[in-house]
Design a protein around this nucleic acid. Sequence first.
DNA 1: ACATCCGCAATGTTGCCGCAATGCAGGGCA
DNA 2: TGCCCTGCATTGCGGCAACATTGCGGATGT
Lengths: 224, 224
Amino acid sequence: MQILIVEDEIEIAETLRNVLQRELFVVDHVARLAMAHEAVRSISYDLILLDRTLPDGDGLSLVRVLRTEHPGLPIIVLSARGDVRDRVAGLDEGADDYLIKPFALEEMFARIRAVRRRPAVLCVEEIRAGALVFDVVHDEALVAGVRLDLVRRELRVLATLMKRRGRTVLRESLEQAVYGFDDEVQSNTLDSHVSRLRRKLSEAGAGLEIHAVRGVGYLLRAST
Amino acid sequence: MQILIVEDEIEIAETLRNVLQRELFVVDHVARLAMAHEAVRSISYDLILLDRTLPDGDGLSLVRVLRTEHPGLPIIVLSARGDVRDRVAGLDEGADDYLIKPFALEEMFARIRAVRRRPAVLCVEEIRAGALVFDVVHDEALVAGVRLDLVRRELRVLATLMKRRGRTVLRESLEQAVYGFDDEVQSNTLDSHVSRLRRKLSEAGAGLEIHAVRGVGYLLRAST
DNA sequence: ACATCCGCAATGTTGCCGCAATGCAGGGCA
DNA sequence: TGCCCTGCATTGCGGCAACATTGCGGATGT
């Protein structure tokens, strides 16, 4: 387990380094963004602890780069800038967690443990099939950069089918995904949503078809 | 994206439900641990929002169970109990994040987005033979990752043969596997299903052949 | 008040599956 | 070896259940 600390305040950095090394982590430390970029290029770290306020810029710029080049690499931001807006910005940039200085070392360890439990590979935020790009985070379907005008139920159906594209989704699973479990549907409403969704997909040239698996459910696949 | 809220304070729960539904999530709500256990057993949620202080116990007990039964399921704890010791306990029990009440809704959304970037863990039980992978859980046959378009009866036949691949399956056993005990077939219907299945297997290049054992039954094996 | 969404039901369409007809192949017996 | 009989192989057909599609009206939010 190799950790990179990006932190310009020497005292904090040394403290972190000491406690982390005591936990048998391998710890590197850099004080500037430029050096951090260099470090992540040459070494594959398992975790980044990142201060935001650095001499040569905002640490979030590093997050942005890391998220494209090392999508699965856990990043915990450490920052004195801790109001809601800052935290939201940090997490949305792709940080896995956000700790506000000053923080208890015990909590930092707990959050490191939490982050390490996560599977190594990052979930795709976009699912592609045919000409369609499904943005999982924003729940939007795009064809050639254009947003499909889908209503809520259609979106839920599409999202569920996209997650298992190429494989069957049980009718029951679809119903549960589209409605909660209190809400229940008493007719062929699901079918009608599928129908409208099909029309919109074909009109948009998504290159996808929703195939019914008789007695089982539906399945989404790229049209030949 | 289907979310379960476990929260006994109705007002908070309703607020969360409303804002989450406005974000096009499908939201279920339960007020007690017992109901939460039941809910997660029957529905596969994408995210759990969990209050700690519940009428019938500490929400962390649910975390413990979920971590063994649904290792990949994201859990965010919402709690008024927010000192370092509580937070560490929550995270170490397996929660993915820990928000302290009162919290800004914006931050909750940001943390939901952060958690959602992670991949879903899926465990699938599979039987392999030739170029074919039979997914027992989903009842699907794949060749080179592509789903074979088999109808129900064909699937039952294939599943039964796959489970005893290389060995003969009595005609009687096959009939019983394809139809129930009650339903019985009065003609050579089974043979016709075997026939159609053979055609589909060969067209898909499954590298399998179904061999008839005269007077006994059928047998599946990899073609040389 | 208006538009939109969505559940529902009526009507049209598809395709699974049981059935049976026909063809084929193997094996027992003289 | 030739004949026949039995059991498997294949294919087309029809009934029926499941799916597809669409219009309507109530509900909901702006």
